[in-house]
């Protein structure tokens, strides 16, 4: 199990206490709606709260008031972020005494859910991003701990294919699931007991529910477990059948 060592006095803000809902404005620009409860953080009232949005080299920072007087900023459009889908958010509580700008508490990867129109929100396990991948059709990229499915924007109609083409689904998504689980479970050796509100835990929990069995501790058994998860995934989505019959499936 990976251990995380904190040699500083910086408090970690639990992911359960801070989250962001990502949505798209009518003009197509991404915007976010934060939720946070910092009542449990030991910080003076004047300590400032900031939310930072980042994707690769693009960055925006939003002032959310202070511990004593938190305030959601009125303007929350991500106009300076060079991504139309994947954004990382960080929340910081910064001390102001003596002008030292010391971080009292932070959460480096806030939970992000996406607005699904009238049907509530969901937490995307595998967000999709479009990029120039040269001759690759797709790949998995890990933004910090979060897996992102990157699709090649040089391919015409790639977005439509990803959403509804049964062959695309059958050939890409099971392999993507296998790659992500291999990364977490075999390479990083994450366990079910790890931090509940982190991406590996979300994936392991989802996989356990799909396969109907818990993650084994033995490496050999884990490989078989991943196989079982992929089989269950393909079975759930009738991947082979849809590929044979060409039935479209919305994603």
């Amino acid at each position: 199990m990976l251990r995380k060592l904190n040699f500083t006095e910086r408090t970690r803000i639990p992911r359960s206490e801070c989250s962001v809902e990502l949505r798209r404005e009518p003009d197509g620009v991404l915007a976010f709606d934060p939720k946070f409860d910092l009542a449990g953080i030991a910080a003076p009232d004047e300590a400032r709260i900031y939310i930072e949005a980042q994707y690769r080299t693009s960055y925006m920072r939003f002032d959310c008031g202070s511990i004593g007087n938190p305030a959601i900023p009125r303007e929350r459009r991500l106009t300076e972020i060079d991504s139309d889908r994947v954004v990382r958010f960080r929340i910081k509580v910064v001390g102001q005494s003596g002008g030292e700008h010391r971080i009292i508490a932070s959460s480096n990867d806030m939970l992000i859910s996406c607005d699904r129109g009238g049907s509530g929100t969901r937490l995307p396990l595998l967000p999709v991003n479009f990029d120039d991948l040269g001759d690759q059709v797709w790949r998995i990229h890990f933004e910090a701990d979060q897996p992102v499915l990157e699709l090649n924007n040089r391919i015409d109609a790639i977005e439509r294919l990803a959403r509804s083409d049964p062959q695309f689904f059958a050939l890409v998504y099971p392999a993507a699931v296998r790659e992500v689980l291999t990364h977490y479970v075999l390479i990083e050796r994450r366990d079910e007991g790890d931090e509940e509100s982190e991406w590996p835990a979300f994936w392991i929990r989802w996989a356990r529910e799909l396969a109907g069995e818990s993650l084994p501790s033995d490496a050999d058994d884990r490989s078989a477990w991943i196989d079982d998860v992929v089989v269950a995934f393909c079975s759930l989505h009738r991947a082979a059948e849809k590929m044979r019959t060409g039935t479209e499936e919305p994603q």
Partner: peptide
């Protein structure tokens, strides 16, 4: 960067 809000600090700070 682990402990200080560098984005909120000026160059002299």
């Amino acid at each position: 960067d682990l402990n200080y809000d560098l984005y909120g600090m000026s160059a002299p700070e």
